[in-house]
Amino acid sequence: METTAVAPSEFKNGLAAGTGIAIGYVPAALTYGLLAKSAELTFIETMSLSIFVFAGAAQYIALSLITIGTGVFEIVLTTFILNIRHFLMSAALNEKAEEEAIWKKAAYAFGITDETFSVAAMKDGTLHSSFMAGLVLISYSSWVIGSGLGFAAGNAMPSVVQESMGIALYAMFIGLLVPSLKTSWKAVLLAGTAALLNCIFTYSDALSSGWAIITSTLIASISIEAANRLRRKGSIE
């Protein structure tokens, strides 16, 4: 394999692939910074969460729990439940990761979010650590810098733009999914089933949002694979 020769451009490809995430993170990070300030966190505390945790939804929820005076253990447990879905995402990415030193994989694993996972999973071919480094770096920078700017800016951001930018990450998810929907009925079925299940779990309050995403994803992925296998067996025999 010519992995060493392609490494520099893989890094650039990673940066380019992460540009959509970087844009999408800006409003989310600004909002986080604003909320952290209003929750009376210091600048250092606000930045520490973004630098060491790097998990948007968990950070929002931690802020609201801190505000209502929840204990450390409950906050950490809630974070764990919310973020355990990344286990499934990392397992899926590991299947297309190139064989490299474990420490390289363990390093880029820090940057697995819903968004970096989605972009990496939809990339053609295998995943090289240089690609992942570029993808994670641009996303992480946007998140950390945005958090700081949000804290510093106070309520300066015009609300019209802030409201419209709420679509950014969803637009990215849609942009990642639609090309597959156009060519694969299986993708339509998988996305549709998981979306429907997640709506049911969420609106019925049956599961917290972290578990709802994992459960919907697993049920859809397993049942559709099982159905596919049965159908294929039927047509071969």
Partner: peptide, 10 residues
């Protein structure tokens, strides 16, 4: 299958 299902749920 996971990426397509996850995107739907996200």
């Amino acid at each position: 299958n996971v990426p397509y299902a996850t995107l739907g749920a996200l």
